[in-house]
Simulated assay, not measured.
Amino acid sequence: MERPTYESPVERAIREAQERGEFDDLPGAGKPLDLRGTDDPMWWVRRLAEREQLDFSGALSPALALRKEAAGFPDSLVELRTEDSVRAVLDDFNDRVLRDRLRPLGARATQVLAPTVDVDALVEQWRVLREEAEPGPEPTSAVEAPRRRRWWHLRRH
């Protein structure tokens, strides 16, 4: 006597969808799977983040987020217009680093520290980047372009 096989609700839904042909024209059908980098235990998370263009920076610990922010200096400061605003951003960063160091440790956690930044050195690097980014004055030509006539000059009677 043959035992009836149990089909879970999920298996039944998949089988019925296959019978209806809902899986027939999926993207990548008939192509081999891309298994590059699957030796990394987090490969699927990295692929998901890349495919969906997700930003996981909010999942970082505060110290790692601060380290990531510091890695972007001075390039992230180029858009600031004044030295005072650059100093304010860097002083705020150093204050947040010092506050993070006062955070109590978890039960079995090791503390990762973010370093403070040298404000004067980064301000100097910002100056150099700003000078490189600013376009120089446009060269003036010896011949001036003719003046454009306005439309109302055409309506003379």
Rank of each mutant, 00 (worst) to 15 (best):
2 E>P: 10
4 P>K: 05
7 E>N: 04
9 P>T: 03
12 R>P: 00
15 R>T: 09
15 R>E: 09
20 R>T: 00
22 E>T: 02
22 E>S: 00
27 P>T: 03
30 G>M: 09
31 K>Y: 11
36 R>N: 12
38 T>S: 13
40 D>F: 01
41 P>L: 02
41 P>A: 06
44 W>Y: 14
45 V>Y: 08
52 E>R: 13
56 F>I: 01
56 F>C: 05
59 A>C: 10
59 A>D: 09
61 S>D: 14
63 A>E: 14
65 A>E: 12
65 A>W: 06
68 K>L: 15
75 D>S: 12
79 E>M: 08
80 L>F: 10
80 L>D: 08
80 L>N: 07
82 T>Q: 07
84 D>H: 10
87 R>Y: 00
88 A>G: 06
89 V>P: 00
89 V>T: 14
90 L>Q: 09
91 D>C: 03
91 D>M: 08
92 D>V: 01
93 F>M: 01
96 R>H: 05
99 R>A: 14
99 R>Q: 13
104 P>D: 06
105 L>M: 13
114 A>R: 08
115 P>D: 13
117 V>D: 01
117 V>Y: 02
118 D>K: 12
120 D>A: 15
128 V>Q: 12
129 L>W: 01
129 L>F: 04
134 E>T: 15
140 T>E: 15
142 A>D: 15
143 V>L: 11
145 A>D: 11
149 R>Q: 14
155 R>N: 09
157 H>C: 05
157 H>Q: 12
